[in-house]
Design a protein around this nucleic acid. Structure first.
Length: 358
DNA sequence: AACCCGTGGGA
DNA sequence: TTCCCAAGGGT
C-alpha cells in the first residue's frame, strides 16, 4: 500500500463533489457495471461464491500480481479444498504450498484464520464484514471484499486500484503519496452500487488494473471517462495524467553461491533461524556470500537472478559430485520425496524446479 | 505512523 | 538491462 499522506488526500477528495455537474450517479454505476459484465477477465475466483475460495484469492492477491497467483491458487485448492482440510494441516505443509508467493506471514495467518473458523465458527465463515475483520490476516479491505463478493453485503473496498481510480475521477491532485483516508472510504461507499456490491467492487478494481492503470491510463477504453475529472481538466494531454510516484531506493546488488548437493535420493538443506525476520524457519540450499575457491572450474552449474525486496542477487549454483562442499554451511540431508512438503524459499524452489527435482 | 515483509513479470 | 511494481496487514 502506498504511503499515507492525509492532508493532501483530504483536500483532493473532499473539495470536489462527485459526480460533477449534477450528472447521475446511477448512470455512472450502470456504465461501470455494464463494462465489467462484458470486459472483465475470467479468473478462477470469479467463478464461485464459496467464501473459502474468495478468501483464499484475496489473501494471495495482497500485494501480488494475478499472474503469480493463478498457479498457486490452483495447487493450493487441490491440496486444501476446504476450510477443514486447511485447518487440519500442519503449518509446514501450508507454507510449502505457499512457497514462491512471498510474504509468508500471510500463509501463517491464513492457517491460523482457518483454525479459528473451524473451532469458533463451526467451520463456516462469519457472513459479515464486522466479524471478518476480527480474524487473522483480514483487514478492512479484505473483510469488505469477502463480505461483498461472497455475501452481497453493501460495503465498499478501497485498495490501490480503487484509490487511484477515485483520485483520477475526482481529478484534483495527482499524487502517489496517497491516501487511504476516511474520506476515500466514504467516497467509495457513496459510489457503491448496493444492488451488486461484489461486482461493483470488482469492477472498480478491474478498471484500475486494466484501464485506469498507473502511468499512462487507457482513457479511450474507459467506460466512465465522461465522469472523469482528470481527463476533463487536462484536456486530453496524456503526459499529464500519470500519477506521481515517491522516489524509490536504489537496488542493492549482491552475489551469492549455493550448493545443490544430492546423495542417495537426499538433498542437503538448511533451515533459516526461527527468529529471522525474513522467511523465518524456511528451508533453503546451503549458501555463502563469499566465492568458494576455484568454484568456476570445480562445480559451477548455472547462474540465476533473484530479487528479494530491494536486493538483487546474482546466484551461482554449484552442482557437481566433484564440488568442494566443505566451504558450505552444514545442513540436513532431506529425502527428495519429502521436499514438496517442506516450506522452502522462493529462490530454492526456483533452483529445484530448474533442475527438475520438484 | 512509519516500516517491514517476497517475488516474477512487463514496460 | 533497468525500473516499476501488485486485490494489504501487522506492529
Amino acid at each position: 500500500m502506498l504511503v499515507s499522506k492525509s492532508i493532501t488526500a483530504e483536500r483532493s477528495l473532499a473539495a470536489s463533489p462527485f459526480p460533477p455537474n449534477g450528472q447521475s450517479l446511477g448512470a455512472f454505476r450502470r456504465a461501470l457495471l455494464r463494462w465489467y459484465d462484458h470486459h472483465h477477465r475470467h479468473l478462477p475466483w470469479r467463478e464461485t461464491r464459496d467464501p473459502y475460495r474468495i478468501w483464499l484469492s484475496e489473501i494471495m492477491l495482497q500485494q501480488t500480481r494475478v499472474a503469480a497467483v493463478l498457479e498457486h491458487y490452483r495447487i493450493f485448492l487441490q491440496r486444501f479444498p476446504n476450510i477443514q482440510s486447511l485447518a487440519a494441516a500442519s503449518e509446514d505443509t501450508v507454507l510449502s504450498a505457499w512457497s514462491g508467493l512471498g510474504y509468508y506471514r500471510r500463509a501463517r495467518m491464513l492457517h491460523r484464520c482457518a483454525q479459528r473458523i473451524a473451532k469458533q465458527h463451526g467451520g463456516c465463515f462469519p457472513p459479515d464484514s464486522k466479524a471478518l475483520i476480527a480474524l487473522p490476516g483480514i483487514g478492512r479491505y479484505t473483510a469488505a471484499a469477502i463480505a461483498s463478493i461472497a455475501f452481497d453485503e453493501p460495503v465498499a473496498v478501497v485498495d490501490g486500484n480503487v484509490e487511484r481510480v477515485l483520485q483520477r475521477l475526482v481529478g484534483k491532485e495527482r499524487t502517489a503519496i496517497a491516501l487511504t483516508t476516511p474520506q476515500t472510504w466514504q467516497l467509495a461507499q457513496e459510489l457503491l452500487a448496493t444492488s451488486r456490491p461484489g461486482d461493483f467492487n470488482q469492477a472498480m478494481m478491474e478498471l484500475g488494473a486494466t484501464v485506469c492503470v498507473p502511468g499512462e491510463p487507457r482513457c479511450a477504453f474507459c467506460p466512465v471517462r465522461k465522469w472523469c475529472g482528470t481527463i476533463a481538466q487536462e484536456n486530453g494531454a496524456p503526459s499529464a495524467r500519470g500519477m506521481l510516484k515517491p522516489p524509490s531506493a536504489p537496488p542493492i546488488k549482491k552475489k551469492l553461491w549455493c550448493w545443490l548437493s544430492l546423495r542417495n535420493g537426499d538433498i542437503r538443506l538448511v533451515q533459516r533461524p526461527r527468529e529471522a525476520s525474513l522467511m523465518p524457519g524456511m528451508w533453503e540450499l546451503p549458501q555463502s556470500a563469499e566465492a568458494p575457491p576455484a568454484w568456476k572450474t570445480a562445480s559451477h552449474w548455472r547462474t540465476f537472478r533473484h530479487s528479494i525486496t530491494i536486493t538483487n542477487y546474482t546466484v551461482h549454483v554449484l552442482r557437481s559430485i566433484r564440488a568442494d562442499h566443505s566451504a558450505a554451511p552444514r545442513g540436513k540431508w532431506i529425502a527428495l520425496d519429502s521436499v514438496s512438503q517442506l516450506p522452502i524459499t522462493g529462490l530454492t524452489r526456483k533452483i529445484l524446479k530448474a533442475d527438475g527435482i520438484i
